[in-house]
Every structure is written in C-alpha cells, then in structure tokens.
C-alpha cells in the first residue's frame, strides 16, 4: 500500500477567456516524503497544477485529495491547506512584498495565528538555517537573484509545510546559488518533507528525483522513476526534452561493449565514472 500524500484525479482547469484547457484531465499520485520532478514544455500546465495544489486556483472539475481527504475550499480549510502545501514562486520579485528581509519572512508565520514571540523565534531559526544572516539587514531590492531566492524559500519554510513546491528554482541563478538551493532541497527531503520541483534540467532530475512526471498539454504523458522515464526517447521527444547525459553515455558505452548492460542504470556522472574505473 502506497503512502499517498497528494492525489489528483481527472483535473480540468481553464483560465478565464481561454478556450483551451490548461489542465486537461490531469491525474497523478504523490507519495509522502518523495522527491518529485515535474518536467514538460512551457505552458504544459505545471504552474497551473501547482496553483491548484495550493488552493489558489480551483479546478473546474476533478478532485484533489491531501492525505486522502478531498480539498476543503472554505476559508478555514484553505488556511490549513496553505500551511501544509507551500509554493516558492519562480520569480522572487513577484513573491517578496516587503523591503525588509525580516518582515518578509515573518509574514507567512504570523498569518498562521502564532504569537509574535514564537514567530520571531521561527524567523530567526530559518534565517540562521538558510544562511541569510550576512544580508538580513539589506533591503530586498538590493539583494542578488540568488539571495532573493533564498529569502523566498525561507518565506515558505518558516511555515513548516508538509509539501514544498519549487517552481523552477534554478532559473536565473548562478551555479553557486543553484548549488546552494540544491543543498537546501536535499536537507528538506531528509526531514521528510515532500518536495515537488518543476525543472527543465534533465541531468538534475535524473540525479535527484525519486519520481518524474512528464507533462504535456495539461496532462501527464509519462511518469515513473527517472530511469524508466528517461529511457523512453519517443516520449522525451514529444515533450521537447533530451536524454540525460549520463544515460546517453551509459547506453553508448554498453553498445560498444565497454560496460555491461546488466549494471544498474547510473543516475549521476560519478556513478558512471565508478563503473568505468571498476570495469
């Protein structure tokens, strides 16, 4: 029996004045504590689905369940839902509303109705944990892209969600900051938080994810472990993705007889390197 945290069943959604459905009979199941990558071309419904998960958008038909209970769209229900499912938006500039880092991070937790002392403690804790201290006194408009991203992640973490959704977290980040974001994500999964990431980086998804969902035109085209999903070239082509480098290289090496195809499919380049060294 799978331990499901989120379940979407046959979701339909279209934006006002748009004849096309942004979500077109989308169904999927997310297991608790897993690392999930969402991939697919722009406009394939990833962001729309995320907004549905958080209750910002309400699907026209179909149902969403959190922990087996259908979404409750009452005021109180939404409040509870949004505490448990947090979204880090793609563009930090449309998420950060305050010029002060401290104020910004305190917003979410104060909305949960905790006391100011407790909120202050939580904010301090998250500032320390994400290493925001060196720039905590800078105004948000003077922060670099990577620093803004860290603050926008802290915004959500301070609310202690069970599911955290990151919409293209590495977009417009330099390698050092995307490395930092990846480390934070790893720490989250260690704590048992379910992490859902939208990304275009197949190599990252291959190395990181437990499960990959490929979206196309508002529904799931394929899903499974990265090994399964990325082995299927036909589906990848349909979603404008290429194979991860490590997989391509591995297949070539197998074809040439350098490595045995009986080996477990490598996820990262380091794994492949080890195979070659040991062969």
């Amino acid at each position: 029996m799978k331990d499901l945290i989120l379940k979407a069943d046959n979701l339909y959604f279209s934006y006002e004045g748009d004849k096309n459905h942004s979500l077109n009979g989308l169904s999927l199941e997310i297991e608790r504590g897993k690392k999930i990558a969402f991939m697919g071309p722009n406009g394939s419904g990833k962001s729309t689905f995320f907004l549905c998960c958080n209750g910002i958008l309400k699907p026209v038909s179909g149902s969403l369940c959190l922990d087996g209970e259908p979404y409750d769209y009452s005021r109180k229900g939404l409040l509870k839902l949004r505490q448990r499912v947090g979204i880090v938006f793609q563009d930090p500039d449309s998420q950060l509303f305050s010029a002060s880092v401290y104020q910004e991070i305190s917003f979410g937790i104060l909305n949960l109705g905790v006391s100011e002392e407790e909120a202050a403690r939580e904010v301090e804790e998250v500032i320390g944990r994400l290493e925001i201290t060196p720039f905590r006194h800078k105004p948000t408009h003077a922060l670099s892209g990577g620093q803004k991203k860290l603050v926008s992640i802290a915004d959500i973490l301070v609310m202690h969600p069970d599911i955290i959704i990151l919409d293209e977290p590495a977009a417009a980040l330099d390698p050092r900051h995307s490395e930092m974001v990846n480390k934070i994500v790893d720490k989250l999964t260690e704590k048992g938080i379910t992490v859902m990431i939208a990304t275009h980086d197949v190599d990252y998804a291959m190395g990181w994810a437990d499960q990959v969902f490929l979206f196309k035109e508002g529904r799931v085209l394929a899903f499974g472990t990265p090994e399964e999903v990325f082995a299927d070239r036909e589906t990848l082509r349909e979603t404008n993705l290429r194979q991860p480098a490590v997989l391509e290289l591995f297949e070539t090496l197998c074809r040439k007889g350098i490595l045995s195809s009986q080996l477990k499919t490598p996820r990262r380049l380091e794994d492949l390197e080890r195979y070659i060294r040991e062969s």
């Binding site: 949004r82 449309s94 998420q95 509303f97 002060s100 104020q103 917003f107």
Partner: peptide, 24 residues
C-alpha cells in the same frame, strides 16, 4: 501582471486581507 502574481503569492502564504509582519 506583477500585482496579480504578488496577490497569488501572498494568498499562497495564507494572506487574509491584512498584512501582518514583525518589526525588527
């Protein structure tokens, strides 16, 4: 567009029509 996106992002953090923040 930005104001729309901001509103969504604030709603996603349980915004209830009242901006409450801590002062440093």
């Amino acid at each position: 567009k930005k104001s729309d996106a901001l509103y969504n992002a604030m709603e996603a953090r349980c915004y209830n029509g009242d901006i409450r923040v801590l002062d440093e």
